[in-house]
Amino acid sequence: MSSGKQKRVIPGTTLFDGDMARKGYALNKMCFSFNSADNRAEFLKDKEGYCDKYGLNAEQKQAVLSLQVLDMLAAGGNAYYLAKLGGIFGLDMQDIGAQQTGVTKDEFKAKLVAAGRK
């Protein structure tokens, strides 16, 4: 499933384009549902059942249940919607950034601060 067009390659970055939007639709739709507190509670009660209700494929479900953000992105997840899933587990953007870049949260925060000193 791909548009087949030439794409600009940006290291460590995937543009959320039509190919990704098609691939990740079910996963993102589930994350969009987490705007509702009732849905967040329902998810926490039965995570796998909730994933099934939204029709996640095996790759997406595995990524969600193991809470691996890079895997969710590879499965078509979009950062804006995935943030709502992260919120359920009390993860902030530094937790998520640290996980994706393979450093501790303190190291990730230090890197942000260092970007301001350049």
Binding site: I10, L70, M93, I96, Q100, T101
Partner: peptide, 14 residues
């Protein structure tokens, strides 16, 4: 800013 991917945390002050 960039929230996602291996380049998460990217900032370009210049």
């Amino acid at each position: 800013h960039q929230l996602e991917g291996r380049r998460a945390g990217f900032i370009n002050k210049e």
